[in-house]
Design a protein around this nucleic acid. Structure first.
Length: 825
DNA sequence: GTACGAACATTTTTT
DNA sequence: ATGTTCGTAC
């Protein structure tokens, strides 16, 4: 197979001559600040050598991306092509050539992790810490910084609170109830997601589509959204979306302020551009676009093939239209891969080529080693066997001295994890799950944080409501509602209302006493805020409030863990100057470090694997309906399929040396055993780089598996993705709904989705339709029949519901299965 | 205020 | 099937 290398310049080609960098003195008006040291150090480093060391070791394309600092640049950086290196070196280069002070560079990333990593690496390049890069951070943290400076321009005061999703949902619930709506019929969580979606698109209540507005609460969607925004304003609070939208509003309404930032930011950089949503895009354009004639020094780095966040508002289109937004843009492709073997790249490249909406890159490597194995596809009977076989493979690698840290299992959906965890527990194999519930999302942490928030921020009603009766103080719903009404009527925060109401006789003596104590506690803590070390105060708050005691008295299994978490929380506060500073950081940094010391296999979703790499990668669950996920198909249509394919591409390209893909023939979905079809993506792998493991699958010889080893043989190199065997099969199944996956009798309607533009979307997970057709076709079994099941052996039918049978198996006990899986014994 | 049972949903996740 | 969330009854 052609590797497509022909039109790509060779590595050792002489780099194109570049004009020597002309150091220009930073403009006089440049803000001084702590960054000068870095610039000075960088310049010193530069003077020592002719070709600065930071440029050595870059390939020509990388070097071009680093050195093309003037004018708009789009760097299309494929997986493993040194994207972060380019970005950080580019910043180092700008600093070293004195084009700008650190404080004049705006660099936006998506995650805190990415920001941290960049800061570190720039520090290495330039020598020393990078405190002087105040505008390197996530979109949100930069947004906060802007807002704290100009809060009054959007009607907030600069000490506004940042609400997380949990707070938002509780707030919305209150609003829904206040509107007299049934909060059961109109779930707050759902509406929170809708608002989030609107904010991702940069829409104010007035701007949301009429249809969207009608979709919620009998057409009250718009009204509720506006009420929510009004409530945020009175609370002096922002949700995550506002951290982007308020700056946008602020800049639009105050061109003079925008101009100030235009003058400040000489260079703008954006990481992971393919993941930006519309709001972030608007934000970037406001800050980066300049009037005609003024240089636009903007550099976006991304990979359209790794865009996997469309479902949360990311617009691949942003990257596709970069050249239109920034005329004269230079597009630089990085295609030389430093991570993976040629087989891995060949497999991933062939797969992703089935996508239509892409700019088109082909990764290559010249580190070819004949010992490198192909990507291997394995079959297993069910997910249990899948986990068992993966476990064996891991143990074997372990015996060959491969550290577990170099291996990862990347799943499509988190429910797949458990089977692996179970297996690894029995094997005594260390593993770590990445991306589970976060430290700061834990109940006890959120409670403790609510105490701290309320001390620092007495107007934080959400924090107040969260902890006023935690631990239990006898302040129930009635008291809270009273207090709430009292506060709303006087337009004061609830803590203040509590202070007032205890002087009245509106409450029963018991509640009054309890509330009096709470108010007194908070008064005391507030008075200590300035002069007590904040970690000490934090401990004091938790003890005096009775919160620690609450968990000490709790005899449930997790109580000790919660106390440990609280200790950890106090310990982590050390890193910040004050309690306020700590709260600020935590609001934006929701991740906590994992202990990297242990040698362990990583288990995570494909989404959280983006940006990581491992020697060996296991990709289980490549079955239709799971991967590509049925819901992505149902809801996203063709675009959804392509995003799933990109996800597959991300998965494969995580692997450096070895990549094992698995599919199972049977999987339990919602408690029912279903037979599955191999993922269509398997059909899209090239036989030159991927092979089928003929030995896999202990039931491999059983009957009529149509997907034997010949699967890769009839590989037509390139086709429209909708004429692949997988697609054809899907089409065939769509009309021929009478044959189930085993090719036997009718009655097992398996309808495959049409994800073209037209036609109604049918539910297509095998079994759904089957279940629905129960009235039309009586089961061919009856209660008491002796039957045989391939996995569970012999048993007796004890109940029948349509096509679902409940069977008491001799060995396996009672199971519910679809009748297509059993034969009369 | 707690305990139990019914109803419900079950792709992916950051800030 | 299974876990979680919510409401009711004690």
């Amino acid at each position: 197979m052609s590797n497509g290398f022909d039109d790509i310049p060779f590595f050792d080609e002489e780099p194109a001559p570049r004009k020597p960098a002309t150091p220009a003195a930073p403009s006089a008006g440049a803000p001084a600040g702590g960054g000068l040291g870095i610039a000075a150090r960088a310049m010193a480093a530069r003077d020592q050598a002719r070709a600065p060391d930071y440029l050595s070791g870059l390939n020509p394309e990388q070097r071009e991306a680093v050195e093309t600092v003037d004018g708009p640049v789009l760097v299309l950086a494929g997986a493993g092509t040194g994207k972060t290196r380019v970005l950080t070196t580019r910043i180092a280069h700008i600093l070293a050539t004195s084009r700008a002070f650190p404080s004049q560079i705006l660099a936006a990333t998506f995650t805190n992790k990415a920001a941290r990593e960049m800061k570190e690496r720039i520090g290495h390049l330039v020598g020393g810490a990078v405190e002087g890069m105040p505008w390197l951070g996530t979109f949100h943290s930069i947004g906060v910084k802007l807002l704290r400076r100009h809060a009054e321009l959007v009607g907030l005061s600069s000490d506004f609170t940042i609400l997380d999703t949990d707070d938002v949902v509780r707030l919305i619930k209150q609003i829904i109830q206040a509107e007299g709506l049934d909060d059961k019929r109109w779930p707050a969580k759902q509406f929170a997601q809708m608002i989030d979606g609107w904010k991702n698109k940069g829409l104010d209540p007035a701007q949301i589509p009429e249809g969207d507005a009608r979709a919620f609460a009998n057409g009250k969607g718009r009204e509720l959204y506006a009420a929510y925004q009004a409530r945020l304003k009175t609370l002096n609070a922002c949700d995550f979306g506002d951290l982007l939208l308020h700056p946008i509003r602020m800049f639009k309404a105050n061109p003079d302020v925008l101009k100030e930032y235009h003058q400040r930011f000489k260079y703008v950089l954006v990481d992971e551009y393919q993941d930006t949503n519309t709001a972030q895009y608007m934000w970037l354009r406001l800050l980066a676009q300049r009037p005609p004639g003024v240089p636009q020094n903007v550099c976006c780095v991304g990979d359209d093939d790794q865009s996997i966040y469309g479902w949360r508002g990311a617009e691949v289109d942003n990257i596709l239209r970069f050249e239109k937004d920034f005329p004269g843009a230079k597009v630089i492709k990085l295609e030389r891969n430093y991570r993976s073997t040629e087989h891995i790249l060949g497999t991933a490249g062939h797969l992703i080529a089935h996508n239509e909406g892409r700019l088109g890159k082909t990764l290559f490597t010249d580190r070819v080693d004949p010992n490198d194995g192909k990507v291997v596809v394995h079959k297993a009977w069910d997910s249990e066997e899948e986990a068992r076989a993966v476990g064996e493979e891991i143990e074997q690698l372990q015996r060959q001295q491969h550290p577990l840290n170099n291996m990862a299992i990347l799943v499509r959906a988190s429910f797949q994890m458990r089977e692996f965890e179970d297996r690894f527990v029995t094997l005594g194999l260390n593993y770590r799950v990445i991306g589970g519930p976060r430290f700061y999302e834990r109940l006890e942490i959120r409670d403790a944080m609510a105490y701290f928030r309320l001390v620092c921020q007495p107007a934080d009603d959400l924090a107040f409501e969260r902890i006023v009766n935690t631990p239990k103080r006898g302040l129930g719903d009635t008291t809270i509602r009273n207090l709430h009404d009292y506060a709303r009527a006087r337009n004061i925060p609830m803590l203040a209302a509590a202070a007032d109401i205890i002087d009245t006789d509106e409450l029963k003596p018991k509640a009054r006493k309890a509330l009096f104590d709470v108010v007194a506690d908070f008064r005391r803590w507030q008075s200590l805020l300035e002069n007590t070390p904040h970690t000490e105060l934090a401990e004091q708050i938790l003890d005096e409030s009775g919160y620690t005691a609450m968990w000490q008295n709790d005899k449930s299994a997790e109580a000790q863990g919660r106390l440990d978490n609280l200790k950890e929380l106090i310990r982590s506060m050390d890193q910040e100057e004050s309690m306020r500073a700590y709260l600020e950081r935590v609001a934006l940094v929701m991740d906590a470090e994992q202990n990297a010391d242990m040698d362990a296999v990583s288990i995570m979703t494909l989404h959280s694997a983006k940006g990581l790499e491992f020697e060996t990668v296991f990709l289980p669950g490549w079955e239709e309906g799971l991967f590509p996920h049925q819901r992505a198909l149902d809801e996203g249509g063709r675009a959804g399929l392509e995003e799933e394919r990109r996800l597959a591409y991300v998965g494969i390209t995580r692997a450096k040396r070895r990549c094992h893909i698995w599919f199972v023939e049977n999987r339990r979905i919602h408690g029912l055993w279903q037979s599955t079809q191999p993922s269509r993506f398997l059909e899209e792998l090239p036989s030159a780089h991927a092979e089928y493991d003929e030995t896999s699958g202990s039931f491999g010889g059983y009957g009529r598996n149509p997907y034997g080893q010949s699967r890769f043989d009839k590989q037509e190199p390139f086709q429209n993705s909708y004429s692949t065997p997988g697609w054809k099969r899907a089409q065939a199944n769509k009309t021929d709904a009478t044959r189930d996956n085993w090719g036997n009798r009718s009655g097992h309607a398996v309808e495959r989705i049409g994800y073209g533009e037209s036609g109604p979307r049918a539910k297509t997970i095998d079994g759904e339709l089957v279940a629905k057709s129960k009235t039309s076709e009586p089961s061919r079994f009856s209660v008491g029949d002796r039957v045989f099941h391939i996995k569970f052996g012999n048993g007796n039918v004890s109940a029948i519901e349509g096509n679902k049978l409940t069977i008491d198996f001799d060995r396996a006990g009672q199971k519910r299965v679809l009748d297509g899986f059993v034969e009369l014994a």
